[in-house]
Computed example of a mutant assay.
Amino acid sequence: MGLLDRWRRRRTEVSVRLNLPLQPMHRGDWYEDALIRRFKEQRRGNRMTGGGTELDADRRIVAAVVDVALADPVDDELDDLIDLLVEQCAPRGSSLSMLGRAKVEFGECGVLALHLPAAAPPDVRYEHVPCTYAAMDFMEQLPDAADGVFVVQTWWSDADGTTVYISAPDLERARAIVEPLIAAHPVGAGHAFEVLVP
C-alpha cells in the first residue's frame, strides 16, 4: 500500500449539509473559516476538503454543503464537529452524511426570512451582490440590536428586493426585536416575515 493510500485510510469523508440558503462567501465566513481554525488548533489531522451550494429547480440556493475529512477513529471527532457547527448557529434540520452510515441530524436554531420588497433598482454592489442603500443601512443596524438573541448569517438581494435570513434558537424573541426596527425604517414598507426553519 502506497503512502497516499495509507493517508486516505486514516480519514473518513463527511459531508455537512447546512439547512440555510447561505451565499458562498457567507458559508466561508461562518463555517469554513471556523472549521479551518479549529482543525489547525487541534492538530489531529482533520481537514477541510471542499464546499458547495444546493440549488432548487429555479437555481436558487436552498442549502450549503461543507465537506471535511475526519481522522479515524471518526466517532471521537464527530461530537466535536457538531459542537462547533452548533456554536456557529447551525440551523435545525442540518445533517452529517458518511458512506455506510445513517444520516445524523443536528442544529439548534430556527431561521426567519425577512422579505423587503424593492422600492428602487439595486444601486450599489455590497459584498459583491446588487443591493440598495436603504437595505444596506437596515442590515447594518441588526448586529447591535441582536443582543445575543439572533444572528444574520446571510442575505440575498436582486431586482425583486432583499431577503435577510435571521437565525435564532427562539424565533419569536428575534422577531420581537426586528419588527419595530423594520417598521420604523424606510425600507420596511411592505415587508413580510416567513419562518424558513421552525
Rank of each mutant, 00 (worst) to 15 (best):
L35C: 07
I36R: 12
R38I: 01
F39Q: 09
F39V: 11
K40C: 06
K40A: 14
R43Q: 14
R43Y: 09
R44Q: 15
R44W: 02
G45W: 10
M48H: 11
M48S: 08
M48N: 11
T49C: 03
G51H: 00
G51P: 01
T53N: 07
L55P: 01
D56E: 03
A57I: 11
A57E: 15
D58R: 12
D58I: 03
R59H: 14
R60A: 09
I61Q: 03
V62Q: 02
V62K: 08
A63T: 03
V65K: 01
V68S: 05
V68L: 04
A69K: 01
A69P: 02
L70K: 06
A71H: 10
D72P: 00
D72W: 05
D72E: 15
P73K: 10
V74M: 12
V74C: 09
D75V: 13
D76N: 14
D76G: 15
E77C: 10
L78M: 14
L81F: 04
L81W: 09
L81G: 11
L81C: 07
L81M: 12
I82T: 13
L85T: 03
Q88C: 14
Q88D: 05
P91V: 10
P91E: 13
G93F: 01
S94P: 01
S95M: 12
L96N: 07
L99F: 09
L99R: 14
L99T: 12
G100P: 01
G100Q: 04
A102H: 11
A102P: 07
V104E: 09
E105P: 03
E105N: 12
E105Y: 01
F106K: 01
F106T: 07
G107Y: 00
E108I: 08
C109E: 06
C109Q: 08
G110M: 06
V111A: 06
L112D: 05
L116Q: 02
L116Y: 03
L116D: 04
P117L: 05
P117F: 09
